[in-house]
Amino acid sequence: MAPGVDLLVQFFPSFAKIVLAATGLAIIFGIMGVINLAHGEFIMVGAYATTLAYNGALGALPLVPVDPIGVLPGAVQLPAAMLTGVLVTALFGLVVERTVISGAVPNWIAERTIGRPVVKPMYDRLLDSMVATWGISLIMVQLVRNLYGNSLNGIGIPFGQFSYGNGLSISTYKLVLAGVAALVLLLLYVVFVRTDYGMRARATIQNEGMAKSLGVDTERTYMATFALGSGLAGLTGALYAPLQTIVPGMGGGFLVEAFVAVVVGGASVVVGTLLAGGLLGFVYALFANVWGTFAGRIMLLVVAILVIRFVPQGLSSLVERIRDRWAEVS
């Protein structure tokens, strides 16, 4: 075994899994203070929507004359199906946000019937949002199982294999995913720093009251944020659909990585997720390669516990401290 090359190649899928699992959750938690325990199920929705679209379900919808995915040239079909998955999940996220998280729709109905709002918004109600989203997750898993059965026919893994080292090879798609993960982080950075929305979102994180009095429509910002977070979760589901079996409970396989990464990463969405993906991805790749998947998983969780304990504000706070100290020195 050529340990160096081996480890490097194994690092990529590990990094990709953690980063892609975490981004959607990190955004929603970081900006809205809502813990979405249904995050795994959002990923599942993305995977299901992608797989169904790829297998021609769009054509079966009422009012749709022909399957839009089927008429595309072969190579574009999968990306088109993935895009569908992302959009469906973002839309679903929007619905959840309007009904459960902000309570806007039930309150609107209540205003017109009994004359007062019935639901308090979930922002910054950390523990309540956990319970509510857990309820959503239970409903979604069972609903999907009842509607679509225990398993869907899957999508084949695209691209071929990549050979390296001494007779070793890896599915090229897994390496591609690492690149996509990095790209997603880069795009998020651009969104937060360069767009109007990003500026409003950052203002809302820092000081909601002040942002509101300066004219920021925080409600709109939250809605957009939840949709963005859901869309990202849907992207993860779409990307992993070819790699895994499509079953109603598949979200559970991402939940742990996502939570652990968000907590290890800390307050900053982009920097935190990047660092968490790097550290935890490396730990997993190292231990899984030498001692097997069980060791990899346990060590990932142990390292996460240690980081939470000794750097309770997350890795991104370490970066802040270093940056501040540099600023002082220079």
């Binding site: 194994q10 890896i170 790749a285 998947t293 990899g296």
Partner: peptide
Amino acid sequence: SQFSSTIN
């Protein structure tokens, strides 16, 4: 559900 290291 990820088997890269096992395959390796």
